[in-house]
Nucleic acid binder design. Structure first.
Lengths: 257, 257
DNA sequence: TCAAAAGTGTTGTACTTACACCCATGT
DNA sequence: ACATGGGTGTAAGTACAACACTTTTGA
């Protein structure tokens, strides 16, 4: 069956940059597909595909729904957070014809979902951000990935985004480690803790024992109500030092007292 | 001539929220088109139109180029700043068929360009934001406008955006008035001044006399080099008081000395 | 009992806020 | 001269970066 229009139309796809976090890894995880077909056969690609469109009264699916569907089909992953990133439509970005793609950032709580190969892909797998950057990527997916990382790095400083990457219950060191991973910078234990707790969105729910040496860290989970309110009211949560910082002198000074 | 595809495809358009600023007005200006055809004949709409696509080797124009072209065609305005806002693609947003639109925010230095009616529109005119919100708007353009205002309000606090709305040479009171207009909040004269000058992107270039009573304000323009550097390095420029503010007590206290 | 790791408190500095004061212009 | 409005300085108060101290765990 074919479909005819009086002017040429572009194909429209969605592509997803799916981030995950493993407490044991020193880097963010990204889910990549190995392309099974030409063009760019064998290259790494972001999961994604065509948006379902119909010409009748029912016009098809929403863009965000398309992103969720493609992620589920291609990788078997159900996302916890989804946000539109940017729309890429440069002529020539796909050699087969004009393709405009709406890119999304997706976050998942757990990378346990064994990423499995779907019908459109030779294979889907979690790759560390560092490794991902070393791969050859199809189309303009490198550019999309870079923009996604930049956005994540930027947004994490004023929105409580990182939380969507952790399991339901987590410890303060895990949360801090996550932010250090995303921002690629060391963060002060005490100050990070205070900043997070001042948000008032966390509940203490016991502690985790048996982690090896050291004091057992407290376990936290979200106060969903307070979290939603905070998100709506646009809280500011910046765990990054000001770079110019206040105490610059007077370290030895204090020791003398 | 007709174009045939094996799957149905959406039409893709660009729509622009074009902001302008008039120092004499107490509100931001938005450029609106009055729709000449059904659907929504007579309603207000954002300037925009179809992205040019070709099926051959030359695949057509870039999305951003489409936005610039439509603005020029429909309103005769050349924009100074253009930024992609969001892509709207909900099924049913256009009753005629599936249409996905890539929305842009555009800023112009001067609203002098007499907005003139183009071929696709019954009329294009600058309208204050307040008036725009009171109009009936076509499609989901109300939603697009609201998102654009929210983005502008948010972004202006950490990026030197507002500058793109002023003529080449401007005074500090004008710049402050612009920010007060965008943010819809009064700003302290001295503090605003200090914050702006601390950025180090302005050059003093004389002063403006003959404005009526009062001291003649200094004229400024950009140090382009410093401005670009600042933009690249992601300066933070937040003219908005912290809401909790420091001096809360001790006002009467000082008077007594 | 010691090392390791997490929780908690302390402190100087720098920055922000709200003004006050001084200056320049037109009437 | 004086009213109007813009430029400039300043003190109080606060937040925060750095880091010391305390507590709890496993070996």
């Amino acid at each position: 069956m074919s479909h005819t229009y009086s002017y040429p139309r572009p194909a429209v796809t969605v592509d997803c940059v799916l981030f995950g976090f493993r407490p044991d890894a020193a880097d963010l995880q990204v889910l990549l597909i190995e392309r099974a077909d030409e063009p760019h056969e064998g290259a790494a690609a972001l999961p994604g595909g065509f948006v379902e469109v119909r010409d009748g009264g029912d016009q098809g699916e929403d863009l965000e729904a398309a992103a969720r569907r493609e992620l589920l089909e291609e990788t078997g992953v159900k996302v916890d957070y989804l946000e539109q990133l940017y729309t890429f439509g440069k002529p020539g970005r796909d050699p087969r014809g004009r393709v405009i793609t709406v890119a999304y950032i997706a976050l998942v709580r757990s990378t346990d979902h064994a990423a499995r190969a779907g019908s459109d892909a030779a294979g889907a797998s979690w790759v560390s951000l560092r490794d991902a950057r070393a791969r050859v990527m199809a189309f303009d997916h490198r550019e999309i990935l870079d923009m996604a990382v930049a956005r994540l790095r930027g947004k994490v400083r004023y929105a409580p985004l990182g939380f969507a990457l952790l399991p339901e219950r987590f410890t303060m060191p895990e949360l801090r480690s996550l932010y250090e991973t995303i921002l690629d910078a060391p963060l002060d234990r005490g100050n990070f803790r205070n900043a997070v707790l001042r948000l008032g969105v966390l509940k203490k729910v016991g502690q985790r024992k048996g982690n090896g040496a050291g004091r057992a860290p407290d376990l936290y989970q979200f106060d969903k109500r307070a979290y939603d309110r905070a998100t709506r009211e646009g809280i500011s949560f910046d765990p990054v030092p000001d770079s110019k910082g206040p105490p610059r002198v007077a370290r030895a000074e204090r020791k003398r007292r």
